[in-house]
Design a protein around this nucleic acid. Structure first.
Lengths: 148, 148
DNA sequence: AGCTATCATTTCGACTGTCGAAATTTACGC
DNA sequence: GCGTAAATTTCGACAGTCGAAATGATAGCT
């Protein structure tokens, strides 16, 4: 009960620390890393799509792409089908870095989960979904609160 | 397995959204909210202790306290025992806001956890601790990687 | 074909938050 | 008392973000 709340806080902290370490490793700031992850998740992404996915302003997205490009993690190409669009594509260097950073994490995670039965895993995913739902509901409640 | 990873990502997103909403509600930025939470957790905190706890530079801490003070959430008092120190104390307004924001979250969380048996709760806290440990180990691994 | 309205991205100017280093105020040992 | 160290604040500079204007590209209409 109280332990669950504490565990969630610690989990958040460790996630944050991991992201920080990953960004430092790649020589990026957190925003750029988030953008790079989004780009890696798709084959390639238009600048506008990245703006939407990262919830940044168009201007901030442009400079984030600039930094990623300068660091060698992405390339810009104009979309042949619609030359207004700029396609952002991850480089091989980015994929290598991704494997180096996330590969062992995925491996260690899988290893740790092997200790659980199928039913236990189902319980855990159920819990995660519930926690998510509760937090979303509460975010919505706060947003709709009348001005103080 | 894959669902657990996905669940963790979504959980992180929802936590982030909640923090964002809470900060917006209080008219603070994320850093200031984090500082305020740290101050609320203790009776009161010296500026230096806050610097350490929030992992900010002394300069950034000073301006964060300035903003919190201007917003009416904390007061500055010089420590009587050691007048070099500045004690930062949360106001009643801060406690009220805290109850408004976190009270219902705690309530909803407790409600959701009521569906689980004691054993199931133990499984969940165990999982959270494991996830934490794995992420910490991986953060450490990344930090110690030789330069690219 | 040419004009115009619209779309996608970038550039520009301003602002916020952070930092390192110097300055200020207070405490302590000799 | 005086010099040194401690705690915080001030100062100047810098990185990242935003909104709005500018630029480049497309599609529709006549």
């Amino acid at each position: 009960m109280r332990e669950v709340a504490a565990g969630l806080r610690l989990l958040q902290r460790s996630t944050d620390a991991f992201d920080e370490a990953a960004a430092a490793r790649l020589g990026l700031n957190r925003t750029d890393l988030r953008c790079l992850d989004l780009i890696l998740a798709e084959e390639s992404l238009s600048a506008g799509a990245l703006t939407a996915a990262a919830k940044l302003s168009p201007a901030a997205t442009t400079t984030a792409i600039d930094r990623l490009e300068r660091a060698g993690y992405v390339t810009r190409t104009r979309d042949a089908a619609n030359r207004r669009r700029v396609l952002v594509t991850a480089t091989e260097q980015a994929r290598t870095a991704e494997r180096e950073v996330y590969g062992p994490l995925a491996e260690a995670g899988a290893q740790a989960l092997r200790r659980y039965t199928k039913d236990q895993l189902a319980l855990i995913t159920g819990f995660l979904a519930t926690a998510c739902r509760v937090q979303e509901e509460q975010s919505a409640r706060i947003s709709e609160l009348p001005e103080a």
